[in-house]
Design a protein around this nucleic acid. Structure first.
Lengths: 248, 248
DNA sequence: TCTCTACTTTGATATGGATCAAATCCGAAG
DNA sequence: CTTCGGATTTGATCCATATCAAAGTAGAGA
């Protein structure tokens, strides 16, 4: 399944959002050149496992395109998603050589990878990069805490509405804006993966999607395409405060 | 309630674990001196709110002693704890001036505070500090993801057992070890706060505590003191893998 | 010592979501 | 176009936990 790594020649760097957004927004030219030297690309197809929990991982990476997930699995098979990685999100830990979660591509995925050891060395000497990583990690922590409220206290209907609004918002911000009154988007996850995200069963996910459709909060075009005529109506179903929510 | 800030003279710095463990484990002498210059202490009594969600916070801090919590509250009053802060844990965001969660002292708490702006300036120029903060934030992210599995997929009984083992482990590691076959400790939270931690009601927490006691997994001395004769027996109830669990 | 009050336990009942089961949909392979 | 298999929907039933209610406990203050 896995193709041989792409070289820089295979992909115009203009397609790679990393140097501009994810890791090195404030880097100096020579730091960017250092990063280029340890950078390579990898592609995965939908459904492919990128790394298994416990495996060695000798690179860190940014998602260039597609959607990947982090999931934990209990001995008896119960699964909980703990990370949803979209374009420009970061995978891996500069100072750990194995991963704690299964990382899976849920759509076709392109990663921009950096060899872990030299990347780790760079961090130690480059405040810009470690500060950028700190900011990104703090954002992830905020997202995780929002997610904890969802898992611990929201009803199934609120969970679905929250998930849809999260996806809508992230898709919109990837295109550089905020969702307008009406939005349409493709779900990057199966019902089962949504269930793993939300701490529900896939049957409950399906039922609540049908209920939101019946109640005219969303429309379904096929199984995966969602049309939201009135985004405020969807937000009303999330249980969240009306104002967007300011962060720590 | 709140006492006037302590000065360095009020507290021997030897009592403060911060410079040694939390923020500056690898700092140079002059960096430590910079930190001293912007450092002060604050004390809070059990039950006191340290900051409300949305309030300005002009300092960051490390917990020196006691237990504090981060909680989110929905409009209708549903509450979810999203952070449990013990000795040497960090509070606040160097680059944000307001907080997103209620921060509450659940026991008497002593904080070692650093004025936010100068601390933020130090980070920018001191790789040691920003790297240390990155490591701490990544640890918190791991804890949050463990917590998400608990909230999304564990039964009430597993949640309680997991919570008790987490507290036992953190108490033990604060004393510089790992929990032995038998451990005893004081719960730093009310049943209601435990419910907020676990995404349960306080009645369910109480019932499951009683059940674990009935089944001889734990003993209760009074309402708050827990004695665990066989720690493995408690671990068996958590639903977690037998081996401790390696991290990303 | 005796309240008072917050915390905790226990009981009875209701219910949201899980579980078990079966049908339907739809895209990919032939 | 037809077939096949994974993804999804829908239905019937069950059960873990919430909810509502009341009683018990213990520590702080009078």
């Amino acid at each position: 399944m896995q193709q041989k790594p792409l070289t820089l020649k295979d992909m115009d760097c203009g397609d790679c959002p990393i140097r501009h957004r994810a890791v090195c927004a404030r880097c100096e030219t020579d730091e960017l050149e250092q990063l280029e030297a340890i950078k390579f690309y990898r592609k995965y197809t939908a459904g492919e496992v990128i790394v298994w929990a416990g495996d060695k991982m000798d690179f860190v990476a940014s998602v260039v395109a597609g959607v990947a997930t982090l999931t934990q699995t209990m001995e008896d098979g119960r699964r909980q998603m703990v990370g949803l990685l979209l374009a420009s999100d970061f995978i891996g830990r500069p100072n750990r050589d194995s991963v704690a979660y299964d990382v899976t591509a849920t759509t076709d995925v392109t990663l921009c990878c950096f060899r872990r050891k030299p990347f780790h060395e760079m961090i130690k000497t480059t405040p810009n990069i470690s500060q950028r990583l700190l900011d990104m990690t703090l954002d992830e922590l905020d997202a995780a805490r929002e997610w904890m409220l969802l898992l611990g206290r929201k009803t199934a209907r609120e969970k679905i509405a929250s998930f849809l609004s999260i996806i809508a918002r992230r898709e919109a911000s990837a295109l550089g804006g905020v969702p307008g009154k009406d939005v349409a988007f493709e779900l990057p996850l199966t019902r089962e993966a949504m269930a793993d995200y939300l701490g529900l069963t896939l049957e409950t996910v399906s039922r609540q999607m049908s209920a939101l459709k019946r109640d005219q909060v969303i429309q379904l075009e096929g199984k995966r395409r969602i049309v939201v005529a009135d985004f405020d109506l969807l937000m009303d179903e999330t249980g969240d405060d009306a104002d967007g929510g300011v962060l720590i």
